[in-house]
Write a protein that binds this DNA or RNA. Structure first.
Lengths: 209, 209
DNA sequence: TAGATTGTTAATCGATTAACAATC
DNA sequence: TAGATTGTTAATCGATTAACAATC
């Protein structure tokens, strides 16, 4: 695999390809051409072939792509079989919703622990995950190498906890706080933010204009 | 305002500008140049001026931008004062999290009603919002012009309900189901999807590569 | 074999950056 | 006034699309 400087746009399309391929696989489709995939996804065949060619050669002339092979390849590119370890900070409504409904396993993450300050939660399992007091977070990180932290704390705490996580050696943060986290350029920590309000305001723009 | 064909990239940046300007406003900053804003946001001054120029002239030579004026202008461009009406379908963990924590008012939406099928919820207020039976959705839409529906139902129901919403005359759908909704090209319905798993897989990619 | 479709090179299109006259 | 900074035009860069030889 070459993978020299793959553009952000391409990377953002990979999960969409994966979702479509999983759907095709589920429906028993065994092969697909870039042309057909393009129609289904509202892209051009050229773009699809260009995108894939960033990572290798997955097709066959005259045939197209084997759905299962391609699905697996993209899954690997996205690192879904890496078995990353995860924790969640902030077991409120949203934190609970993620613990209870979101399939972390399917994305290749193992949810190891949760953290909160509410006495009623601490020391108990919540959706199968043990909740610890937030004060023990730094100690936890010292002993448990953790690849990803889901951040679902109140806005006021966002950067404080983010700082603890980064100095504690976390490798990435999935940020739901709607706060722009401060991340030193040299930290190497990956931050991916889900900004609900940005999304809704974008919708509002299209509604208005 | 010209607004001839504003690019998607520009539109996606607007909420970020707004967030930054609100922050500056809160901190009492009264004016800012494109150069300073660029440093704070990790963009170029050129890009910022280009972006704003899509919508009009908000600055002043030799001075820069008045924070409050600019904040208000972008807020209006995004339609935040339009007072849109909203409903939410699917009062599960995630639906509840949004009803309870997300500030719809701040984004210019009034949450009018919620829908679910669980008997324990129906007919009661949930975070100040009355929950109706999903069977009454079509009837509701006939009588109440509704600008936006938050879709937080299980995946299996996503496209069925989405279809009801579209035929019922909804103007937009904020989709949290992680399902690609089928939307007839001529429906004119705006669909904005928050794909949690796409976001996490993107994070996973950066972690892996 | 003939038809289909890939991976890649070349052409085009669009977005970002640079430059600068206008002017506060 | 001089310095600062805008809005916009021009230049550059990158991403998408088109074309096509290779080949299954």
């Amino acid at each position: 695999m070459k993978r020299i400087n793959v553009s952000k746009n391409v990377i953002r399309r990979l999960p969409r390809y994966l979702r479509r391929l999983e759907d095709l696989s589920r429906r028993g489709v065994q092969r697909i051409s870039s042309g057909e995939l393009a129609v289904q996804m509202g892209l051009t065949a050229s773009q699809i072939r260009q995108d894939f060619s960033n990572f290798g050669e997955f097709g066959q002339q005259g045939y197209g792509y084997n759905v299962e092979t391609l699905r697996h390849a993209i899954s690997e590119i996205l690192g879904r079989s890496q078995g990353y370890s995860a924790i969640l900070i902030g077991v409120g409504n949203l934190g609970s919703a993620l613990l209870g409904n979101f399939n972390f396993e399917a994305a290749g993450f193992k949810m190891k622990a949760a953290f909160d300050v509410a006495p009623r939660l601490i020391g108990k399992e919540h959706f199968g995950v043990m909740v610890h007091h937030s004060d023990t977070l730094e100690e936890y990180l010292k002993h448990e190498k953790t690849d990803m932290a889901v951040l679902t704390v109140p806005q006021a705490l966002a950067n404080t906890i983010s700082h603890s996580l980064i100095t504690g050696g976390i490798r990435s943060i999935w940020n739901f706080t709607n706060v722009e986290l401060h991340n030193p350029a040299d930290s190497g920590v990956v931050i991916e933010s889900v900004h609900f309000s940005d999304s809704l305001l974008t919708l509002s723009y299209y509604l208005t204009n």
